[in-house]
Each structure stands twice: as C-alpha cells, then as structure tokens.
C-alpha cells in the first residue's frame, strides 16, 4: 500500500518544491507579484513569449534565483548526506558533519578570512573551506583504519575528538581576529546564503549530481547495512568498500556545501528523520524524497530568514532550528500515537 502511494507523494512534493521556488523568488526587499514571477521564468523557456519588466528580470534571474537554487542544492545535499551518515553509523543522532567535516570546513574558512585571503579573492574562503573538510576526512579516516578495516565506532569517536580539537583551533584564531574579521568570521560560521550568484551554482552542481548518483546506486546496500555488519557480509556486501565509498562521497558533498555557505545546522539531522517518519526507511524512496524535502526545507527557511526583519536578514541556522524542531516533535508524537493504535 505504501509503495503504491510513493510516486504520487514524490510528484506532489516536487510540484510543491517548484511552487516554493516561485514563492521564494517573488518575495524579498521588493515584492514581485506571483504571476509576473512565473512569467519571467516562463519567458526564459522556449515556446513562451511574455513582455516582462527588465528590473524584475534582473532581480529575479540574477539575484534571487541563484540564491534560491543554492539553498535548494545545499538543503538537498545536506539531507541526503544526513541519510547516508545515519544509516552508515546506524545512529539517529548522526548528521553530515559527524566525523568532523563541518568543523574542518569552518577552520579552513576562518583561516582564509584571518589571513586576509578573502580580500584578495572571494574564492579563497570556499577553497580553504573545502581543503579543511578534505584534510579532516583524511585524518579521521586514516586514524580509524588499521589492517584495511575501519571501525565505525572508532570513526565516530575520532570524529568527535578531532571535531572539538578543530573547533578549539577556530576559537583560538577568532580570539586574535580584528573586529572587522570577527564579523566576517561569525557570519561565515553561522551559515549564510547571502549574495549567492550563478558561479556558486556552477561550483555546486557537478559534485551534487555525481555524489547523488553514487549514493543512490548504493540504496540496497544502505538498507542492508542497517541490519548490521554481519548481516551485510552474510548477504554478500563488501562492507569495507561500500562504507568507504559512501563515507567519502557524503563527506565530500558536505564539504562542498560547508565551504560555500558555512555550517547550516539541523537540516541534515532532521530532514531525514522527517522523511523516514512519513514514508519509511527504504533508501530507494528515502534518498529522492530527502533530496526534495531538504531543498524545500532550506528554501523556505531562507525565505523566512529574508523576510522577518526586512530589509535585514536573520541567520538561516536560527530559522532551520525554529522551524524544524517543533515539526519534528509533532511527527514523533504522531508516530507514538500510531504505534499505540497498532
């Protein structure tokens, strides 16, 4: 019964997602009417001809749309990486940055800002962010691997240890930072989507597509890994190789996101749980639905972040927590009630 409903649910949420893109782009400092927004987008497609306002076009196509798309991609990526980490570690508390990727990425960005590299080129922050994430992944992975075998528990513990060590390094640098740098660093650390343009979209799109194809091709293995390592081996899964591939692709994708937007918490932790409570734990459905769920969630969170104290903005991390936590608790209560009825 559940499987019959799946495509419908998936298509419905995709339409909802398209709708949210239009809503998210039409609101902002200047509110552009809904239908004009739709017209501007449609005019870009073949077979549609509309007279559109060129100011609106500028705002929509070069300021708001890239930002909304970055928000969607980052939200989708973090949600899927959260799914992968929770299943790999068989731990509901796992999130994309669990093995220290987020802290590593943050430290990279903080270094770039502290040494003034961000003034030379804005690209230095994401590049250093990504390098930080990558080096952390390597370090944690090498420490936890011996004789070609990686212990998941060691990986988790090493991740936590390295993560707090790296955070301490960031804090130390912040202590020495000047006031101007401090503001920039804090902005970066709390995660922000301000001033995203099409270049950011170009940077994101390739790793996003590649990592997701890779992750989706392992959907059956992810299901089985939830039964435990021995069961996975018993069913003929090359456990070490599968885990390594999944861990690296999820970590790299997270690293790319963190390096561009800073650490946006909560999405990767909570969206997978929400989707799991709605449609069940099978990865074949969980992965695509989490993609859309994460995109939708972060797009809406970003919209709210832009609107509440217009023309200023609230940090998006605040919104994701404010939105996510109550809805999550609602879903947990609903689940409890349903189990009581069984």
């Amino acid at each position: 019964m559940k499987q019959l409903k799946m495509p419908v649910f998936f298509i419905a949420s995709f339409i909802l997602f398209l709708f949210s893109i239009v809503i998210a782009t039409s609101f902002g400092g200047v509110t552009i009417p809904f239908f004009e927004t739709v017209q501007v987008f449609l005019a870009k497609l073949p077979f549609f001809y509309y007279e559109t306002d060129s100011t609106f076009e500028q705002i929509l196509l070069y300021i708001r749309l890239p930002r909304v798309i970055v928000a969607s991609i980052v939200g989708a990526s973090l949600a899927v990486c959260g799914v992968v980490m929770q299943s790999l570690f068989r731990n509901p508390m796992a999130e994309p940055g669990i093995i220290g990727i987020s802290s590593g990425g943050s430290l990279g960005g903080v270094i770039a800002i502290y040494f003034g590299l961000s003034h030379i080129s804005t690209f230095f922050v994401p590049v250093f962010g990504f390098l930080g994430a990558l080096l952390t992944l390597l370090l944690v992975y090498i420490i936890s691997t011996s004789n070609g075998k990686t212990s998941m528990l060691t990986l988790l513990l090493t991740g936590v240890a390295i993560s707090s060590f790296i955070s301490a390094c960031s804090s130390l640098i912040i202590t020495y930072a000047s006031y101007g740098q401090l503001q920039q660093i804090l902005y970066w650390l709390m995660g922000n989507l301000n001033g995203r343009d099409w270049d950011d979209v170009k940077l994101l799109i390739l790793p996003f597509i590649l990592c997701n194809i890779l992750i989706f091709s392992y959907r059956k293995q992810l299901d089985i890994l939830l039964l435990g390592e021995e069961e996975a081996k018993n069913l003929g899964i090359h456990v070490q190789r599968t885990r390594t591939i999944l861990l690296i692709s999820a970590s790299l994708l997270t690293g790319v996101c963190v390096s561009l937007t800073g650490v946006i918490g909560f999405v990767g932790l909570i969206v997978p749980h929400m989707i799991r409570l709605l449609i069940g734990p099978t990865h074949r459905y969980l992965i695509p639905t989490s993609l859309i769920g994460g995109a939708l969630f972060l797009t809406l969170a970003d919209l709210i972040a832009r609107l509440v104290i217009r023309p200023a903005e609230i940090q998006i991390g605040i919104i994701t927590a404010f939105l996510g936590a109550p809805y999550f608790i609602f879903l947990i209560l609903r689940q409890k009630k349903m189990e009581g009825l069984l």
Binding site: I224, L227, G228, L235, G280, T282
Partner: peptide, 17 residues
C-alpha cells in the same frame, strides 16, 4: 534492528545476492 523496516522488507533483503 532498530529501524522500522517491515517484515516483508527484511525478508526481501534476502534476495540481494
């Protein structure tokens, strides 16, 4: 197993190989 797989889903995993 703590994940909410149904009985059918777990038995289906036996077909993986």
């Amino acid at each position: 197993l703590e994940t909410n797989f149904t009985v059918q889903q777990v038995v289906e995993m036996g077909r993986y190989p």
